[in-house]
Amino acid sequence: MASPVGLELFHQIEQFYFREARLFNEKRYREWLESMVDREVYYWLPIFEERYRADRKPPPEFPPAIYDDNYKDLEERIERFETNLIWMEDPPSRIRHLITNLEVYHAANADELETFSNFLVCRNRREHEQTLMIGGREDRLRRHPDGWRLLRRKINVPQRVIMDTNLYYFI
């Protein structure tokens, strides 16, 4: 297992995630992309299949994913928000991200870190709608001259059947 980082770096990374959560809460997606995301990012939310433990059927050759995004894909999703033509977001929904259980480790490459965190995302829409999503993230961050940036993110969502109408928000 890679070694955990010292207190000061841990604090920096914790602040990185709290800032990211605040940008998501305030829907400042463009700012998030341009100041916190590496150009070589891979942002991935795979689905899983409920199989028996002893099952021997091979995994699918083409595993589906809810997010399978590179930088350009993320940017296009953000441009879609920026059109102001998404009726679901007008009136806007309210969203809140809580980030917990942070672990930060040195990666083999000195300019990179590996992290684990849990999230709770609550989205409220219109009068009554409230949906909760709890899960985990496995990230790789890369050092840039102006701070750390997201290089890779795997999002683990435990719901097999997603209980929300869509997952069109960043985690």
């Binding site: 939310l45 083409f62 589906p64 994913a65 809810i66 997010y67 399978d68 995004d69 894909d73 296009e76 999703r77 879609r80 998404i86 009726w87 679901m88 997603i162 109408t165 869509n166 997952l167 069109y168």
Partner: peptide, 20 residues
């Protein structure tokens, strides 16, 4: 597969408009 799910999957750029 990537394009089909990007547009009409659970976080689809088209699909997510319809549910509402």
């Amino acid at each position: 597969q990537k394009e089909a799910l990007r547009t009409f999957g659970t976080a689809g750029t088209f699909e997510s408009d319809d549910g509402v």
